[in-house]
């Protein structure tokens, strides 16, 4: 490398050519590709249910709509506590952030456990027609995203209790929060299409 002595120890500071924070933008683009991944599974759902005219659910199966509705409420609430955590740290309220993140995490875990219980008692498997396949794959794909969200939340919560984040530097909470809201909104779409419609 023909690098002359004296420079190249540190990179020059890149010019910031956009008001958007790089990591936030990265998260939004990542979410865009995640939406498309869900889109491909919704396409499969569309083919089976609309194009193939399959009854939903086909008899003798039943979908536990009430349990899923309660679960939906839990997840939606967790989005609000997430928002509360972010607002707290923006105002310098560290305890509020810690409480908000912990509550969010616990509600996420509750959601996931309820879903697993539901799987165990639902009375059909992924092999039971295309209906079973689509049901388990859509909710399962979402469950995997909840799991990833929980991992991020666990890291954020730990950091919050170790004294990280401040009113000036709360990017970590903000970006993790964006992902969590995405998981939440995606669930509302899955819930509506799979259970309600």
């Amino acid at each position: 490398m023909s690098v002359e002595a004296g420079h190249a120890a540190h990179p020059p500071v890149a010019h910031q050519s956009s008001r958007v924070d790089a990591r936030t933008l990265g998260m939004f683009l990542f979410i865009a590709s995640e939406v498309m991944l869900f889109g491909s599974f919704f396409t499969a759902y569309f083919f089976v249910r609309v194009v193939n005219h399959q009854p939903w659910p086909p008899s003798p199966f039943h979908l536990p709509v009430f349990v899923a509705f309660v679960n939906t409420c839990i997840l939606v609430t967790s989005s609000f506590t997430m928002h509360w955590a972010l607002q707290s740290i923006k105002r310098g309220n560290r305890a509020g952030m810690q409480a908000g993140l912990t509550l969010t995490f616990l509600m996420g875990v509750t959601f996931l456990l309820t879903q697993l219980l539901e799987y165990a008692r639902i009375g059909f498997t992924p092999h039971d027609q295309a209906f079973g396949t689509i049901f388990f794959c859509l909710t399962g794909l979402h469950g995997a995203h909840v799991f990833v969200g929980l991992t991020i939340l666990a890291a954020m919560t730990t950091r919050a209790f170790r004294g990280h984040f401040s009113p000036e530097a709360h990017n970590g909470v903000e970006i993790g929060g964006i992902y969590w809201h995405f998981v939440d909104v995606m669930w509302i779409v899955v819930f509506t299409t799979v259970y309600i419609l």
Binding site: A32, S33, E34, M36, L37, G39, S40, F41, T43, A44, P126, H127, Q129, A130, G132, T133, I134, F136, C137
Partner: peptide
């Protein structure tokens, strides 16, 4: 925008193959 769709399609064929789902 597009690549997640091939990811989806490969998941589906793989599930059909390995886990005997019915996509």
């Amino acid at each position: 925008i597009a690549t997640p769709f091939i990811a989806g399609s490969q998941f589906m064929t793989m599930f059909d193959h390995v886990m005997h789902t019915n996509f």
